[in-house]
Design a protein around this nucleic acid. Structure first.
Lengths: 130, 130
DNA sequence: ATTGACCTTCCAGCGGCTGGAAGCCCCATG
DNA sequence: CATGGGGCTTCCAGCCGCTGGAAGGTCAAT
């Protein structure tokens, strides 16, 4: 299968697939003409990667998860640990965004949003106490 | 004031301050020895930038906000629009993270996390229907 | 004179792609 | 058989917002 087909099948841009090869996540063999010749296993791996990336795992996590997936001797605890660490990071990001959101929404609320120049948003940014 | 003092005062790393000069956000004059000689106005701008960045505004937004801050003829509606757009993007990010979080937490919950290899997390990533 | 803390510039790298250029390959059509 | 168009290849550069590090100048105190 050529990269275009794999791209359509996996939903990943061809560029991304080449990049994943570059960094050693998949290693499709080549046909005589130099084209990448994807087998089922690579297509499967790419789908795995796509899904893991959708869940926000880093490329490094993906590498670990793929390795665990292919390791018959794995313990589910290892996988769970990776996932829990990631969940924790997601929670931190959400908390940070919600804190921003809170401040921002409050400032927006206070701003008249009309033709006059007075603006609590700018005042806050400038460090003026209201 | 030298960059070190400004860094301590604003909380921004010296590297970041130099970078902000590079991209034209602040333009401190130079003393005879070539050192950046920050005046109150630049320190103030840097504090403004630090606060805006804390709220998650992009550098480009910061540029706009700074320009509005310095424009006496601004209308608060302009500022409000920038802030609302940003709020909207934050909300999108939060939603995306929460969706990830939901899936992930569910998978983690289902995973035994013991010495056995069976793992619903990997199964989900591999696209196996459970 | 020498230390050591500052300051300078410049270049490279982070993550995870993405765009674009230049050049093959392959198939269908005239 | 030439041509066109769609694929494929590689390589290099750029996105964002810094951050690290090297190599060197400056300044105040010892």
């Amino acid at each position: 299968m050529n990269i275009g087909d794999v791209s359509r099948k996996s939903g990943l841009p061809a560029k991304t697939i080449r990049y994943y090869e570059d960094i050693g996540l998949v290693t499709p063999p080549r046909s005589e003409n130099g084209y990448r010749a994807f087998r089922e296993i690579e297509v499967h791996k790419l789908a795995f990667l796509g899904r893991a990336r959708e869940l926000g795992f880093t490329i490094d996590d993906c590498r670990t998860l793929l390795a665990l997936y292919e390791d018959d001797g794995r313990e589910s605890a290892q996988v769970k640990r990776v996932a829990e660490d990631h969940l924790h990071k997601i929670d931190e990001k959400i908390a940070q965004l919600q804190s921003m959101r809170g401040t921002l929404a409050h400032l927006i609320d206070e701003c008249a949003g009309d033709h006059r120049p007075d603006c609590p948003i700018l005042e806050d940014l400038a460090g003026e106490q209201t």
